[in-house]
Amino acid sequence: MAEVNSSSGHKLGQLVGDWFEEYFVCPLLKEVAESLNLYADSRFNSRACRGHKIIWEYLDSNEVDYDAVLEINGTNAQKGIPVAFIECFWRRGSRHSKDKARDDSGKLMPMRDTYPSARFLGIIAAGDFTAPARELVMSRGIDLFYIPKAKIVESFNYCGLTIDYDDKSTEYEKDKIARSFIEGFSAKEKRSEVATTLINLVGKNEIENYITRVRARLSSSPQEIRIILRQQSIPIRFESTQKVALFLNDPDLSMRNPAESFVYEISYSDGSEFSKEVTSMSELKELHKQISTLEKHMIGDNKPPTWSYR
């Protein structure tokens, strides 16, 4: 009898998770990126401007790696302006669902306070992810694209592959399923076949709705921008990004005091807010540059949302 791998269940889950990220999530985000003329970064891209992980800095110079990031003006040679951060995962069982929701949403939320252009934070989840866990994610203002476990399992079953087993299964039984799965899932054509089956089960309308949600979030325009000196209580108010740019090109002399710090605040048409304190005029200009670039980009001609598996 062949040697039994005591971690067969974990290995099987890892293989399904990697497939979900590469064959479903990445094509979906590439479609979003093409629709909105953005760069979609994932660990399946090779970029000269980073290592293996997709690492971004947030408040206090901390660093976190993400599953995917959408950028304006990003290329293989250089990072662009981040507009969306996305985490994805597959969960076979519901155990610790709320912990997973808390961890991933907590990982995403700092980017909202770091980059004013990071208007979309999302999780693409597949598997047994409980209702309380899903509610926690959405309560934090994070978009959730959720695919129930039954549809993932059905996609594999339809293509002659088994990925699920009873919780009381022995290690030998799980090892047998894992070995059979690995043997039948090695060909790229089989992986694509399962992905196409999943797309049909989820429905192309749901996928296009996701693309529309990303577009809507990024397209929400600033309605009021406020620049506040930390030492004064009355903000300087602007009604457009253009008026802010004119002011920053020739600010009031009191704004040039290097001892001052500033708060940059934005109210958006969708009701959301952004606020960040900076300690220099150059940082203030960089914040506004990111907002202006996003606004101009979204006003430009972008392709309508479509979906086709690639």
Score class of each variant (00 low, 15 high):
residue 2 A to N: 14
residue 3 E to A: 04
residue 4 V to G: 12
residue 8 S to E: 02
residue 9 G to H: 01
residue 9 G to K: 08
residue 15 L to C: 05
residue 18 D to K: 08
residue 20 F to D: 04
residue 20 F to Y: 14
residue 21 E to R: 08
residue 22 E to F: 07
residue 23 Y to Q: 00
residue 23 Y to S: 04
residue 24 F to C: 05
residue 24 F to T: 00
residue 27 P to Y: 02
residue 30 K to I: 10
residue 33 A to L: 10
residue 33 A to W: 04
residue 34 E to H: 14
residue 36 L to T: 13
residue 41 D to K: 12
residue 42 S to W: 12
residue 42 S to R: 08
residue 44 F to R: 00
residue 54 I to M: 08
residue 56 W to Y: 15
residue 57 E to K: 15
residue 58 Y to N: 03
residue 60 D to I: 05
residue 62 N to V: 13
residue 63 E to Q: 12
residue 64 V to M: 08
residue 65 D to E: 15
residue 66 Y to V: 15
residue 67 D to A: 01
residue 68 A to W: 00
residue 68 A to T: 11
residue 70 L to G: 01
residue 73 N to R: 15
residue 76 N to P: 00
residue 78 Q to S: 06
residue 82 P to G: 04
residue 83 V to K: 05
residue 84 A to G: 02
residue 90 W to L: 07
residue 94 S to N: 02
residue 94 S to F: 02
residue 95 R to T: 06
residue 95 R to F: 14
residue 100 K to I: 11
residue 101 A to K: 00
residue 102 R to L: 13
residue 105 S to R: 05
residue 108 L to H: 01
residue 111 M to D: 06
residue 115 Y to I: 07
residue 119 R to F: 04
residue 122 G to F: 02
residue 126 A to M: 08
residue 131 A to Q: 15
residue 133 A to I: 00
residue 133 A to L: 04
residue 133 A to R: 00
residue 137 V to S: 03
residue 137 V to Q: 00
residue 138 M to D: 05
residue 141 G to P: 09
residue 143 D to N: 09
residue 149 K to W: 03
residue 150 A to N: 09
residue 151 K to M: 14
residue 154 E to Y: 09
residue 155 S to W: 09
residue 158 Y to Q: 13
residue 160 G to T: 14
residue 161 L to P: 04
residue 163 I to Q: 03
residue 163 I to G: 06
residue 166 D to F: 03
residue 168 K to Q: 15
residue 170 T to L: 11
residue 171 E to V: 01
residue 171 E to C: 12
residue 173 E to M: 08
residue 174 K to D: 01
residue 179 R to C: 04
residue 183 E to A: 09
residue 184 G to V: 03
residue 185 F to G: 04
residue 188 K to E: 15
residue 189 E to P: 07
residue 194 V to Y: 00
residue 197 T to Q: 06
residue 197 T to W: 00
residue 200 N to M: 07
residue 204 K to F: 05
residue 204 K to A: 09
residue 209 N to L: 12
residue 210 Y to V: 08
residue 210 Y to D: 14
residue 213 R to T: 09
residue 215 R to M: 12
residue 215 R to L: 11
residue 222 P to F: 05
residue 225 I to N: 03
residue 228 I to N: 07
residue 235 P to S: 07
residue 239 E to A: 05
residue 240 S to L: 04
residue 241 T to P: 06
residue 245 A to P: 02
residue 249 N to D: 14
residue 252 D to Q: 15
residue 254 S to E: 06
residue 256 R to H: 07
residue 262 F to S: 06
residue 264 Y to T: 03
residue 266 I to M: 07
residue 269 S to D: 13
residue 271 G to V: 14
residue 272 S to R: 10
residue 273 E to R: 15
residue 274 F to H: 11
residue 277 E to A: 10
residue 278 V to I: 14
residue 281 M to N: 12
residue 285 K to C: 05
residue 286 E to A: 10
residue 286 E to S: 13
residue 297 H to Q: 00
residue 301 D to S: 15
residue 306 T to I: 10
residue 309 Y to F: 11
